[in-house]
Amino acid sequence: MTLPLYDYSPLPTRPRLTWPDGKRVAFYVGLNIEHFLLGKPSTSIWPLDLDPDPLNHGWREYGARVGIWRIIDILDRYGIRASALLNSDVAQHNPQIVKAGVERGWAWLAHGRTNSILHTGYEPDEERRVLTEITDTIEAATGQRPRGWMGPGLTETHNTPQLLSELGYQYLLDWTNDDQPYRLTIPGMFSVPYTLELNDLGLFQRGLSGPDFLQMVKDQYDVLRDDLAGTGRVMALALHPFVIGQPFRAKYLNLALEYVASQSDVWLTTSDDIAAHFATV
């Protein structure tokens, strides 16, 4: 029988959570930096079975060639360090991106090998080997051993959290069920909020516009700041360079981050620092 990963904890019954300097909202950018296999079905703009697939593969690859650099410029403008959700295969195929992030002091989270393969179906020994390889590859490329995990497509096995703990990880992003971090039943492991809602991939594929995105970011921040005032919240913004990195959308990312960064009660941080702070409370 698989033990539950976490217990139910109603938000109003929890102790007051405080952030550094009395800030109300801990804000981080979850920047998905991914590698996709040519000819392997994955995130697509058109659901076609093509091999080779220049239509969908080219759309995705725009992020690594162009979109990521536009996003980097915007993040630099507001002094925001990304929480980089890194496929380990990026270290081989796009080392220039890793170098740029290292120079900026980004936090590095493991995001599987490639987003063309979900992290499912592993037997424990095989999964331990795969997770070790992913972790070692990211550490070698970035000089930083990852402390956080988000599976490709937010996927895990029942053994993933325990195996990650044994490898020195501290937190998961896969369980998007809260506005605050919380402790898992595995000692020393936490869940840190991520988002499937304020996520450019889902929003724009549903037909929302740049102005819609901007208003949603503003509304998310305002409500988290004011909702149950007095206890800290986390606001994650999930970005994919091949989506938000398009010029007509990047304009609104710039405006959204301008708004958030201008708030007096925001802690501009990383998921690593959120987990580290929560571990002390």
Rank of each mutant, 00 (worst) to 15 (best):
R147Y: 00
I138F: 02
W149K: 00
T135Q: 07
V130D: 10
T160I: 00
P181D: 07
D179A: 02
T160C: 10
G153D: 06
G168F: 11
L163K: 02
I134D: 04
T157I: 11
T137I: 03
P146G: 09
P161F: 03
E127M: 11
L164D: 10
Q170C: 07
E156D: 14
E139V: 00
G148C: 11
N177W: 07
E139P: 00
G151A: 04
P146I: 04
R147A: 14
N177Q: 09
D136P: 05
P124V: 08
T135G: 08
W175R: 12
E133M: 02
L173Y: 10
R145E: 04
A140G: 03
P181G: 10
P146D: 07
N159Q: 14
E123P: 00
N159K: 10
T160A: 08
S165R: 14
P181L: 08
L154V: 09
N159M: 09
H158Y: 07
R145H: 00
A141C: 07
M150N: 13
G151N: 03
S165M: 01
D136W: 03
E127T: 05
T120D: 10
S165D: 07
A140S: 09
T137P: 10
V130S: 09
T137D: 03
A141H: 02
T132R: 13
T135S: 14
M150V: 15
E123N: 12
R128M: 11
Y169M: 01
E156M: 15
L167N: 11
V130K: 14
T142W: 01
Q180C: 07
L172Y: 01
G121I: 05
Q180E: 13
L163Q: 15
V130N: 03
D178P: 06
R129G: 09
L163A: 08
P152F: 05
T132K: 05
T137W: 00
Y122E: 05
A141N: 04
L131W: 05
L163W: 05
M150D: 00
E166R: 07
Q162H: 03
P146S: 12
G148F: 13
L167W: 07
T155M: 05
Y169K: 04
P152T: 02
T132D: 08
P181E: 12
T155C: 13
G121Y: 06
Y122R: 12
L173Q: 13
G121V: 09
P146Y: 06
G143Q: 03
A140V: 00
P146L: 09
E133R: 14
V130Q: 15
